[in-house]
Structure formats: structure tokens, C-alpha cells
Simulated scan of single mutants.
Amino acid sequence: MSTIPTDLRYASTHEWARLEADGTVSVGITDHAQEALGDIVFIELPALHSELIAAQPVGVVESVKAASDIHAPISGKVIAVNEGLVDAPEGVNTHPYESWFYRMQPNNPDELQQLLDAEGYQANT
């Protein structure tokens, strides 16, 4: 397993969340998740401007061997989606921590503190 970035927060469902300088949160899946899925061939992203509820499914990642739901790590409104992943989903396999799926405006930024830190996430994988 690769190094788990310490500047991110992690959901037990293998999504990562990064607090950006402008107060928004970028979300993607972890290296562990992409490794378990295998070669990713399709990503269904949440709709722009949709309201997400923490821990609820918001999209799907499909690989050659499985499909898995993407869950919202925190609640908030989608303000951007990474359309580049729709055309080239395999980028998640090579750069999982640079390949953000969507950005959101959190309803409550304190929810990030309820997620796992890198050490806690590593202990759970």
C-alpha cells in the first residue's frame, strides 16, 4: 500500500476529503479503494448543485471486476465535478490522491473532524 497522505481526512468507506484554502472540500477515493477495485473503467459522479448527506451513496465507480458506491464523507452541496474522470477514469488508478471526483461546499466544516486521520484510516484498512 502507498503512503497515506496526512493532510487528508478519511471515511471508513474509503473516500478521502481535503479541505481547500477557500473552505470547500475536494473528495476522491483512496489508494486502498482503487487497488481493491482494480482497473477502473467508469465513474458516475454526483450531479452539480446536488445536496449530499454524509455517509449516503452519491455515485459509482466501476472496474473490470466490481462496482462500488461512492459515499459522501460529509454533508454539503456539490459545486464542481471532475468531468475529466468521466473521459479518463483510469487516472484514479495511477493518481488516487490527485484525482478528485467532486468539490463541495460543506454544510458544517466541523464534520471533517469526525472523519479518520491518516493513522486512524491506516489502522482500519
Rank of each mutant, 00 (worst) to 15 (best):
P57C: 03
A80L: 07
W100E: 10
P57F: 06
P73I: 02
G84T: 10
E98K: 12
Y102L: 00
A72P: 11
V78A: 03
V58D: 12
A80S: 12
L115N: 12
E90K: 11
Q105I: 00
G59K: 06
Q105T: 04
Q113F: 07
P96Y: 06
P73N: 11
V81T: 15
L85F: 07
T94C: 01
P73R: 12
G91Q: 15
P96N: 06
D69C: 04
E111N: 08
H71I: 09
L85K: 09
S99G: 10
T94M: 00
F101H: 13
N108P: 01
E111K: 13
S63E: 02
Q114I: 02
L112Y: 12
P89I: 00
G76I: 01
D110P: 00
V78C: 03
A67W: 10
Q56D: 15
V60P: 03
P73S: 10
P96E: 04
N93C: 01
K65I: 06
N107Q: 14
T94F: 03
V58G: 12
V81H: 05
K77N: 05
Q56N: 14
K77S: 07
L115S: 11
E62T: 06
S75N: 06
A72S: 13
G76C: 03
V78G: 03
P57R: 11
N93D: 03
I74P: 10
V78L: 02
R103D: 07
I70H: 13
K65N: 13
N93Y: 00
Q56G: 00
Q56W: 05
E98G: 15
V64W: 12
A88F: 06
D110W: 03
G59D: 04
G76F: 05
W100H: 10
F101N: 13
N107E: 13
N82E: 05
E83K: 12
V58I: 15
H95C: 01
A72Y: 11
A67D: 01
A67S: 14
H95L: 09
W100Q: 11
E90Q: 13
I70V: 15
M104Y: 06
V64H: 13
V58A: 14
H71V: 08
A66P: 08
S63T: 08
A80I: 01
S99H: 10
S99T: 10
W100T: 07
P106Q: 07
F101T: 07
A72T: 09
V61I: 15
N108E: 15
A88M: 12
P57Q: 06
L85S: 05
A66T: 10
S68V: 09
K65T: 11
P109F: 02
E83P: 01
S99V: 00
V78N: 04
